[in-house]
Design a protein around this nucleic acid. Structure first.
Length: 257
DNA sequence: ATGGCTACGATCCGTAGA
């Protein structure tokens, strides 16, 4: 079983790359973020032809999330229960007994800004939501763009980024509050090479210099973590012409029984 | 010290991302 997450930065622009990647990587489940397109425009037919059924929550211009799956998706839920939000950032569904929550966490723009305050409030609501989900679903995966680099080793230049949005202490505290629920960062279940990132700025040849951040994550409940056999980032799509600024993160599991 | 790219929706620039 292979679960992946990818912030595609426009489903319209990235569709050819997405289909190509699906054909090669063949994930069983893929969480998508930043569709940036109205829900009726989501390319359901193209993904269907590629073997995937989709749960979509999207809007014009900003945000937008989806779960694509080879197996049927049940009990679809959009958004965070009890947290009123116009922004389409969360969708959840159950696939073969595994609850999958796909998240596009707020960027936060700049520490101290209104958007930063929103980010922290949003993470508080996410924590409460996931706490309830964990009680209902022992096999829970939360995958997406968290817009938080959890530790300095997830940052290419910790000195330059010190105190900035994505690495600030309140954001890292919000991240650790998710771990405190019993969720595991799948990437850190394994010995990893240094300087693995999932996002690189389009500017200043950041990808060439590997000047990145690891902000796309797959969190697993303890029960799911037990069957996880690897967690990696696939840099290949970031090398293509006109890439997303994010690369896919992938977790693999031993098949149940 | 600043702006550097990219996508979008609206124009020929502003907003947002991270």
């Amino acid at each position: 079983m292979k679960l992946a997450t990818w912030n595609v930065n426009s489903i319209k622009v990235r569709l050819p790359q997405l289909l190509e990647w699906l054909a090669g990587a063949r994930p069983d489940v893929l969480c998508l973020q930043e569709l940036k397109s109205e829900e009726p425009k989501f390319p359901r037919a193209e993904l269907e032809a590629a073997g995937y059924t989709c749960a979509v929550s999207s809007q014009k211009t900003y945000n937008g999330v989806a779960i694509a799956s080879r197996a049927p998706l049940d009990d679809r839920v959009e958004g965070i229960a009890g947290f009123a939000d116009e922004q389409k950032r969360v969708i959840a569904a159950t696939v073969q007994g595994m609850r999958v929550v796909c998240v596009y966490c707020p960027n936060g723009q700049a520490v101290g800004s209104d958007k930063y305050e929103y980010k922290l409030r949003w993470f508080g609501a996410l924590r409460n939501y996931l706490s309830a989900e964990l009680h209902k679903h022992p096999r829970l995966a939360v995958a997406g763009d968290f817009n938080v680099a959890p530790e300095d080793r997830d940052v290419h230049d910790p000195k330059a980024w010190e105190g900035q949005v994505h690495v600030s202490e309140p954001e890292r505290v919000a991240w650790r509050a998710l771990l405190a629920l019993g969720l595991k960062d799948s990437f850190r279940l394994f010995e990893q090479p240094e300087k693995v990132y999932s996002w690189w700025d389009y500017r200043r040849m950041a990808f060439r210099r590997n000047a990145g951040l690891r902000i796309d994550h797959i969190l697993l409940s303890e029960e799911l973590a037990k069957s996880c056999t690897s967690s990696t980032v696939d840099k290949a799509p970031r090398k293509l012409e006109r890439p997303s600024d994010h690369a896919p993160a992938i977790a693999e599991f031993t098949s149940p029984r």
